[in-house]
Design a protein around this nucleic acid. Sequence first.
DNA 1: ACAGTTTCCCGTAAATGC
DNA 2: TGCATTTACGGGAAACTG
Lengths: 434, 434
Amino acid sequence: EKQPCMPTHPQKPLIIKTGVQFSTKVRLLVKLPEVDYQLKIKTTFDKDLPPGRVNRQFFILTNNTKVMDFEESSNGCLTVDFRHLNGEIKYKEINFLQQLKEKKVINGTKGNEGLLSVTEELHTLSFEANFSIQGISIDLETCSLPLVVISNVSQLPGGWASVMWYNLLTNEPRNMGFFGSPPRASWNQLSEVLGWQFFTFTGRGLNKEQLNMLGEKLLGQQVSHSDCQVSWSKFCKENILGKPFSFWMWLDSILELIKKHLLPIWNDNYIMGFVSKETERALLKDQEPGTFLLRFSESHLGGITFTWVEHNDNGEAKFISVEPYTKNRLSALPFADIIRNYKVMVDGVVPENPLKFLYPDIPKDEAFGRHYNSQQNKVFPYIPSMLVPMSTLDSTLPLCSSPEPPMTPGMFDMLNQQLRPFEIETAMNSPYPE
Amino acid sequence: EKQPCMPTHPQKPLIIKTGVQFSTKVRLLVKLPEVDYQLKIKTTFDKDLPPGRVNRQFFILTNNTKVMDFEESSNGCLTVDFRHLNGEIKYKEINFLQQLKEKKVINGTKGNEGLLSVTEELHTLSFEANFSIQGISIDLETCSLPLVVISNVSQLPGGWASVMWYNLLTNEPRNMGFFGSPPRASWNQLSEVLGWQFFTFTGRGLNKEQLNMLGEKLLGQQVSHSDCQVSWSKFCKENILGKPFSFWMWLDSILELIKKHLLPIWNDNYIMGFVSKETERALLKDQEPGTFLLRFSESHLGGITFTWVEHNDNGEAKFISVEPYTKNRLSALPFADIIRNYKVMVDGVVPENPLKFLYPDIPKDEAFGRHYNSQQNKVFPYIPSMLVPMSTLDSTLPLCSSPEPPMTPGMFDMLNQQLRPFEIETAMNSPYPE
DNA sequence: ACAGTTTCCCGTAAATGC
DNA sequence: TGCATTTACGGGAAACTG
């Protein structure tokens, strides 16, 4: 009869942060005959969870009772929307604006297995109303989909992973023990969700090649990933081999990077982003010198780098990648300007920008010109100054410039044991398929 | 009998921010004969202000009663220090950790003249205790010096100005209407306080020349500023002529800049900082080309620039200042590294660092070498990249490079009406005394 | 409309708990 | 001790309010 909607964290529904206001909407789906009186809705947090399994306990700080009525108009706080939809069903909506506070559990024994993290702990909001019609008292009750409660935005990625996994893999309205033994997802399902994440939060999804690279990263090289199963743990809990973060933490850090610093370029489809080093080399190998592409760092959270191709004296292609730029650097200098002004200075010779064509052959300025920042702000008595990103190289020193090593740890170790000058880098190319 | 100390905001006592914990200490100065029982201290905010004049009203959210006793040891929250001092007087101290919340004043008429800003509104904390000895009940009561209550750190500079002004100009323990008609300060008094501010917060005070420049800025050119009177309004409320900020706001922004980004260089005394443009030119005029000095921006809040001297073909000195660096830029690149790597490129020619000697003749690297950041962090497969601060000039364009115009508005307008190439700048020099 | 003031809340750092 | 989680609060921005 009543269909509850979810409390919302900015852009991420079903996640609530303690101490921060959230809002919920409840819609009454029955058409009440001429009910003009005000209907009181009471909200309760974790109303009747099985007492044995309770983990953290929360309570709603503010008024947990709100009136659902027809008159109030939208003021952002206690908005009540009243709409006729298709002339058939009446929706009444209520917004609660309230916040949550953790009850200190006196009882020392938290019921649950210690294995679950707080972002795997599921909660609900219950809504109750009572009204009487023609002398008959009627109780209505409903509750939300499972919620995740976090205490700091640093837990948002983990919480969102839980929400995604739950909603991807079950239709149950309230399986609170879901993460006690979470089901696996097929790569087919998961890749669709990942693409959808990018689409929702940035405006552009992921193409076949990008998803393929992600599949390989998560599952290793396979003929087809479609039917592979991905465990919850592999997706979000276990660290990637040799890295201090999980697959989802890595991917989410890239989502955040795009949202804050790369949005227009990403939406113009100028960031290939998810490319293996092997593919990268294969693509660049036969291109004009100075052809480059943009790739997200696999070794650091939230980083983006460019790799360009040059040619040795003997005609071999060599590939150079710059140290990845992270949000700190990008907030000092937007990425388009980095590409525009990037310089390499070898042996103190006049610096030159090695970036000429965005793969496959788009002149740099044609691709990024729209996003250049003419940061030459005229402050009258001063001469303007800008930051120029620059790599300074000394060709006599064995400065290593090879792109990231492949994922296999053996290979990684092997590479790490060798310091070598530029020339040898091209050797990295041959072992890989083209 | 009891001597109260002040609640503390980090580094700035007598300022309390709503919603943030603060602590107070109360010391009992009488030696109680064998009092081992616990003495309860009750704290009240604005206990008995004349009701007519009340502005904002606040109350203490947390427990306002704490026990002063001998046993408790320092745990950071309810610390009680117990010390014998000189074997004569017993100090008992209590820390209150509590926060303040504003009462919504139902009564619409705030008593005070609307002229005062919130940072000029003074409040107090009262402390009360009662104990009985030999059947006689004894009441103790005391209260703090006037406090300023702010709701956001953005109000801290204003609040701190009030605390300084109050404590500089009165010895009254609680003149709550002080800012109704605040007295003036002599420049003698004020300059001492300003120097002390720098000393306290950075470790280095201000020398005669620096204070002199500040005096001129505040009072205009005078034979001697010592006996000049500075009004509270001029110090903190009125904007500097032609600028959107007051004298103290400007000075405080520089204090903050030093604290966060320039501390070691400032403490090495390598920042002249407060120099008028006239003096700057007089100093640099006869120095080696490439001699530079560091000066705080007078036109923007929290900015620092360098000015260096070069010579024209005809031997005239010309002075060039870079656009001031503010906290945003400095957090991308520390100032010492900016000085180290700063380049000017004219007509696309090889860029060169024009900064050679810190005034009067200290080789740049000798002065700043200790603070250079070898930011060449080796991230294995990538080539490192750094940000290089650079000014790019085209000598065929009339790019203006004159240092800041002098403060007189007429002069400012005159300058603004002229766009001119480098060479003319030297003309600016002659009108000024050397 | 607007300026002074407060609220909101992210994101870093520190504290706490386990 | 180390890791997971929470708390603290500066700082930018939005919301509020006369």
